Simulated assay, not measured.
Amino acid sequence: MTLEHALLPVRPGHEDDFEAAFRQAKTIIASMPGFRSLTLSRCLERPSTYLLLVEWDGLEDHTVGFRGSAEYQQWRQLLHHFYEPFPTVEHYEHVLTA
């Protein structure tokens, strides 16, 4: 399992529109092969920043399968104009649970 981690800096004042667009976009990503689950959380200290965590079966399900798909273009169209600056996306593998 691969965990995608992205801090999403949404332009201040556009949080409600972003959340509405994300509700639409989540159906796109959820339909992709290798997708397991996602959570979107809003920062309490910086309310224009969101944390996106997506579980994938493997790294390539995200980096090749999703990002190389026509569905990703729809995702981009719905969400990417909200970000300032564009987020950094990183991938993690599970090490330990307590």
Rank of each mutant, 00 (worst) to 15 (best):
residue 49 T to Y: 13
residue 93 E to K: 05
residue 27 T to C: 07
residue 64 V to S: 15
residue 43 C to F: 10
residue 60 E to V: 11
residue 64 V to K: 15
residue 74 Q to N: 07
residue 67 R to L: 11
residue 43 C to E: 13
residue 18 F to H: 12
residue 20 A to T: 07
residue 7 L to V: 14
residue 28 I to K: 07
residue 15 E to H: 06
residue 71 E to P: 00
residue 28 I to A: 05
residue 81 H to L: 14
residue 58 G to D: 15
residue 81 H to E: 13
residue 32 M to E: 01
residue 9 P to T: 07
residue 21 A to L: 11
residue 81 H to P: 11
residue 73 Q to F: 08
residue 10 V to Y: 07
residue 90 E to A: 11
residue 50 Y to M: 00
residue 62 H to Q: 14
residue 45 E to G: 14
residue 70 A to W: 02
residue 75 W to M: 04
residue 44 L to C: 07
residue 95 V to L: 14
residue 9 P to E: 09
residue 73 Q to D: 14
residue 14 H to R: 14
residue 29 I to S: 12
residue 58 G to Q: 15
residue 31 S to G: 13
residue 93 E to Q: 06
residue 51 L to F: 03
residue 59 L to S: 04
residue 29 I to N: 04
residue 27 T to L: 14
residue 48 S to F: 11
residue 62 H to G: 09
residue 89 V to F: 09
residue 30 A to N: 10
residue 25 A to S: 11
residue 34 G to F: 08
residue 18 F to S: 05
residue 23 R to F: 01
residue 32 M to C: 02
residue 38 L to I: 01
residue 14 H to C: 13
residue 66 F to A: 10
residue 67 R to A: 05
residue 3 L to G: 01
residue 34 G to D: 07
residue 33 P to C: 04
residue 81 H to K: 15
residue 56 W to T: 02
residue 28 I to P: 10
residue 67 R to W: 08
residue 72 Y to I: 06
residue 6 A to K: 00
residue 78 L to V: 02
residue 98 A to Y: 11
residue 53 L to V: 07
residue 93 E to D: 05
residue 12 P to W: 07
residue 85 P to N: 07
residue 78 L to Q: 05
residue 22 F to V: 01
residue 32 M to F: 03
residue 21 A to K: 13
residue 3 L to K: 08
residue 13 G to C: 13
residue 34 G to P: 06
residue 50 Y to F: 09
residue 28 I to M: 07
residue 4 E to N: 08
residue 87 P to V: 02
residue 85 P to A: 10
residue 73 Q to A: 15
residue 33 P to E: 04
residue 82 F to P: 06
residue 27 T to S: 12
residue 17 D to V: 02
residue 6 A to W: 05
residue 89 V to R: 03
residue 15 E to R: 09
residue 28 I to D: 09
residue 28 I to E: 06
residue 36 R to M: 08
residue 90 E to M: 04
residue 6 A to V: 00
residue 74 Q to G: 06
residue 35 F to G: 00
residue 22 F to P: 04
residue 57 D to C: 09
residue 81 H to Y: 15
residue 74 Q to R: 13
residue 39 T to H: 05
residue 20 A to K: 11
residue 87 P to R: 01
residue 64 V to N: 12
residue 55 E to S: 08
residue 58 G to R: 15
residue 9 P to M: 11
residue 75 W to C: 03
residue 6 A to I: 01
residue 51 L to C: 01
residue 69 S to P: 04
residue 28 I to H: 09
residue 28 I to F: 07
residue 10 V to I: 15
residue 6 A to M: 02
residue 34 G to E: 06
residue 17 D to M: 09
residue 36 R to W: 04
residue 83 Y to I: 14
residue 38 L to P: 00
residue 92 Y to K: 04
residue 51 L to N: 03
residue 48 S to Y: 13
residue 57 D to Q: 10
residue 4 E to T: 09
residue 8 L to F: 03
residue 38 L to K: 02
residue 46 R to L: 08
residue 17 D to R: 09
